[in-house]
Amino acid sequence: MLIVAGVAGLIVAMSLMIVRAVLGPSHYDRILAANSFGTKTVLLIALMGYLFGRPAFLDIALVYALINFVTTIALMKFFRYRSLARPLAVAGGEDGADG
């Protein structure tokens, strides 16, 4: 019963995140919502493993966490620099002088 309550709470939180991802207004708000949504999906899948008695779901939760991070970084880098190929600067302006 408590697990079902946890799942319900996560579903509510995910729905609110979808509202923010759709509304924006800026692209960074959307990325933030997508990232947070992904973290909640990880927790939801882990909980579902307990609900349905399938602990192997934890492997998949781990994959979601990983994919979520890489997608967030890709979106962030794209929106900020319009490039997937450039390295990220170490310190502001220092090694970007010739760029």
Binding site: S83, P87, L88, V90, A91, G93
Partner: peptide
Amino acid sequence: ATLAPPAGAPGDHHVVLR
């Protein structure tokens, strides 16, 4: 072709990410 990293804005660093 290759390009250097983008010119950083003030406060624009990604040490944590690296």
